[in-house]
């Protein structure tokens, strides 16, 4: 049946492939859209909290989400300058 359809439509019927690829891709991308805002929000709040205690370069705060099938991981990578404990100690006094 599929072969018959293919013959009727001609061999160049690539539109169904385009349609299917788009549907899968957009379902994925629409799912990510809300999330990218979540990551931005998390990053901003983490930055604000940590900055209260440590002097940070905002560019060195990286928040990443990896989605797995059963579990997803949230990775927070914050680079702090050496000697930051001293500034905390100073602040405590």
């Amino acid at each position: 049946m599929m072969n018959l359809l293919r013959i009727l439509r001609g061999r160049n019927a690539s539109a169904p492939v385009a349609r299917e690829r788009l549907q899968i891709l957009l379902a994925h991308e629409r799912g990510l859209r809300g999330q990218s805002d979540l990551l931005g929000l998390l990053r901003a709040e983490i930055l604000a909290v940590v900055s209260r205690h440590v002097v940070l370069d905002p560019d060195k705060v990286i928040v990443r989400m990896d989605r797995g099938k059963n579990v997803s991981t949230l990775e927070v990578d914050i680079e702090v300058p050496n000697g930051f404990e001293r500034s905390i100690a100073a602040a405590a006094i």
């Binding site: 019927a13 169904p16 349609r19």
Partner: peptide, 16 residues
């Protein structure tokens, strides 16, 4: 070209 299945049809685009 759309009728021959070489190009996304109007219905395809609107549905997506």
């Amino acid at each position: 070209r759309a009728a021959r299945g070489e190009m996304l049809s109007i219905d395809d685009i609107l549905e997506i």
